[in-house]
Simulated scan of single mutants.
Amino acid sequence: MELLIEHRPVNGYVVYGFPWLAGVSLARRMALRASLTEYRRIHGLQLSGVFKGRRAATEPSPTAFTDLLDASALSDVYGVIVPGLSHLGPKHLPAERTGLVEATGARLLMARRPRIRSGHVPRQQAAHRRFPAPLLALSTES
């Protein structure tokens, strides 16, 4: 999964969003929208559309996801932003759907990285960061 566009040559910065909204409250929908918008803004991306999944995520090919794949296959699309992997479906579906998105030539971008439980890392590293810190480019020429 690609997290930053600054490290790859691209023709454009067109992305599509894909939040899963089945059974989600209005407050949660607004938070998901804000998450996608903020990620787009920070990374200088153009959010050209949002495909909203509203039916059972276990359907073999929900209409919203199929439409997302069709749009992602366009030549000027950089990637697809999801709030988190859980928005691609339960259990085995995120891995399968990640492959389907990447097969179109688009990158899968996560607006929020998975949280790390504090019991698995030292206390000073347990703080959750919403977006990764920018990487510094180092020159290899002398």
Rank of each mutant, 00 (worst) to 15 (best):
G49F: 12
R41C: 10
A95Y: 11
P122A: 12
Y39T: 08
P122V: 05
P19G: 00
V82T: 06
P9R: 12
S118Y: 10
Y78K: 09
A126Q: 05
S72I: 04
L45K: 09
R113I: 07
A31C: 02
A106G: 10
L93C: 09
G84F: 09
E102C: 03
S35L: 10
R40E: 15
L93E: 09
T140Q: 07
E38T: 05
G119T: 10
P90F: 08
H87I: 04
L4H: 11
G44N: 13
A111G: 06
I42S: 01
P62D: 14
R130E: 15
A34D: 15
H7W: 06
R112K: 12
R123M: 04
R33D: 13
L109P: 04
I81H: 01
P114Y: 05
I5D: 05
W20K: 03
L4V: 12
P122L: 05
L68T: 00
V80I: 14
T66N: 05
A106I: 09
A64S: 15
S86I: 12
P83H: 01
P19H: 03
L109V: 03
A137G: 01
I5N: 09
G89D: 03
L32G: 01
M1R: 07
S142G: 09
R115P: 03
E102M: 11
G105F: 07
A73D: 11
V14H: 13
L36Q: 10
A111I: 01
R123K: 10
R33L: 09
A73Q: 10
L108Y: 05
Y78S: 07
H92C: 05
R54S: 09
V82D: 01
A106E: 08
A22S: 09
L32R: 00
R112A: 14
L135H: 13
V24N: 04
R40A: 14
V24Y: 02
G49Q: 11
S48D: 12
V121H: 12
T66R: 13
M30F: 07
S139E: 11
D67F: 01
R112E: 13
T63H: 11
I116L: 14
D70Q: 13
F51V: 06
L135P: 02
M110P: 06
S86M: 11
M1E: 08
A127E: 12
M30L: 15
P60T: 00
T98G: 10
F18D: 08
S25R: 07
